[in-house]
Each structure stands twice: as C-alpha cells, then as structure tokens.
Design a protein around this nucleic acid. Structure first.
Lengths: 152, 152
DNA sequence: ACTGAAAGTCGCGGCAC
DNA sequence: GTGCCGCGACTTTCAGT
C-alpha cells in the first residue's frame, strides 16, 4: 500500500510542502515526475488530508492558548454528538479529543485575550447544561506544536 | 502591520495552501500578483511559519493518540529546560504544552500501537527521575485536529 | 505496473505602468 | 496596487524495463 518512497515523501511533506519536485527527487532517489505522480496519488487516496499554513501566534497579536478538560453530565450518544458538532463549529477550539479516563474531552483553545476566553467559557461551557465540570490549564509555553506523526 | 487583506489571505492559507494566486485573488478582492507579493512577505516576516501536509493517521496504519498529563518532581529551571528539549527531540510527541494548574505539561503523543506506547512511557516517563507523576488519557476520537487559529 | 524523459500547459515572479 | 511576459514548475504522454 505505502512503500518506502511514499513514506519518505510523506515525511518530507509533513514538514514542508514548498519543496520542488526536483528537491524531493534528490531526497528520495526518484525522478521528479515519479515524485509528483506519487504525491497526487497520496492526495487522491486521502493519505494527505490537507496542506496548510502554520501561522505564528505572536505575529497575530499576543494570543493565549488553553488546555480545557471537560466532563459531560452523562455520556448519552446524542449529547456527545451535539457536543462534538459544537466543538467542530467553534473557531476558538483548535483541537478536540474524546478521551477515556477521568474526563471526557480535552480541548485546545486559542483566544486573543483573557476576556475572550471568559466569553468563550460563558457561551460554550457555563451555558451548556450537559457539561458537568471543566478545568482550565493556561498554556505558558507552547513547547512543541505540530501535526507531524512519526512514520516508520 | 496586518490589514484585512492579509488576514483574509492567512485565513485561506491556514486551511489550504494549494489554491492558485488567481483563486486567492477572487476570494480576497485583489489582483493575483498582489496576493503573491503579500504571501511572500508574510513568509519572510515569519507570520507564516511553515506550510505542511496533514496526514491521515488511519491511512498510515492503525494509530493511537494519547493525551498525557505530566507533573515534574520540582520546577527547577534546568530540569524544565531539559524536559522541554527532550520533548522537542522525541518524534512520538506531536505536541507539548507547559501549563499552569495541577499538572505541569500536557503532551499529545502518537504511536502505532499500545506496545509502542508502553515503550515510550518506559523510555521517557518511568525512567525519568524528574517526573513525579503522569496520567494517560487514551484518545477514542480525534473530534477536531488542526492548527488553524481564529483571525478576527 | 511503474519508472524516466520530453513535450505541452499552467502558474509564479519580476518589470512596466 | 494592476497587467503583461518570460521562465520555471507541474502535468501528460510515451516508450522502456
């Protein structure tokens, strides 16, 4: 399904998509056209889900991140489903994971300021009857931020 | 510093970098050349930190994600600094946040299998004398995964 | 079936306005 | 800031392995 060439290409692409086919070809040991053909296949088959720009939070004005642990009142399927939809709709929620353990969801939230975060908690957490409890951890340092997974 | 055109461009770019200058130009109401000049400036000035591919974990073989809460033994600067460096070096650690609250760090970890995760905890958590305690939350659903922050 | 090379097409990047 | 033009990069085709 995925051979060593594909994995090399994916490893390069998940750190930088701006390399030319020629640069890729030298790195993986394949001709430029073969590299591009493989890349397009990886896009079509959904192995590459998206190609996106990573922005500097500092450059966008001082910006706060929070990790929020959320416990729902009851784990009813319809409540869960509604909550997930709401998280996907809400731009402040950068990431949302449904997890096992003492809490149900972990959110990564990005806001411009503390008052924005207060507004967010009011709108989405306090006013949500399905939420039993939530706990905010303020991010002091984004030590490592990315989406790159280890391949092989 | 950043005007409305820049913000529109950034919003488009943080969801998809494959649009052509012509497509961008229609979306933001500027000529294609103006869009490209602005984009290159945003790259040079570091507003755009990187352009990367997002891969499908499913397509890379069944893959597990964990959220790990870590508390250090003592918050000594040198210990903290060493821990941060180790997290940045470790490919399984997708993200690492230094946070306030009951725990010191939140990690997002990606592994191929439970036994890989066991190996990871042994290498980086159990064998680290500076770590007081850690708690693993297994991710059952990656409800929302991304890096896109709300702009405006 | 997939690679590699060449021809064809498209999009980027500099220059004039 | 916009529009044009040359060049570089991607796409497609085709032959070879």
């Amino acid at each position: 399904m995925l051979d060593a060439f594909d994995r090399k290409l994916l490893n390069l692409m998940q750190t930088d998509t701006r390399r030319t086919a020629h640069e890729l070809s030298e790195a993986v040991g394949l001709s430029p056209s073969a590299c591009l053909r493989r890349l397009n296949k990886l896009r079509e088959t959904g192995v590459i889900e998206a190609e996106i720009a990573v922005l500097s939070p500092a450059a966008l004005g001082h910006r706060l991140s929070m990790v929020v642990e959320v416990s729902l009142e009851r784990e009813r399927p319809d409540i869960m489903s509604d909550f997930k939809k709401a998280m996907r709709r809400t731009p402040e929620v950068i990431q949302c994971y449904y997890v096992t353990g003492e809490v149900d969801f972990i959110l990564i939230v990005a806001v411009q300021s503390m008052s924005d975060y207060e507004a967010f908690t009011n709108d989405f957490l306090f006013n949500n009857k399905n939420i039993k409890r939530f706990n905010t951890l303020v991010v002091m340092d984004r030590v490592k931020v990315g989406l790159a997974v280890p391949i092989e």
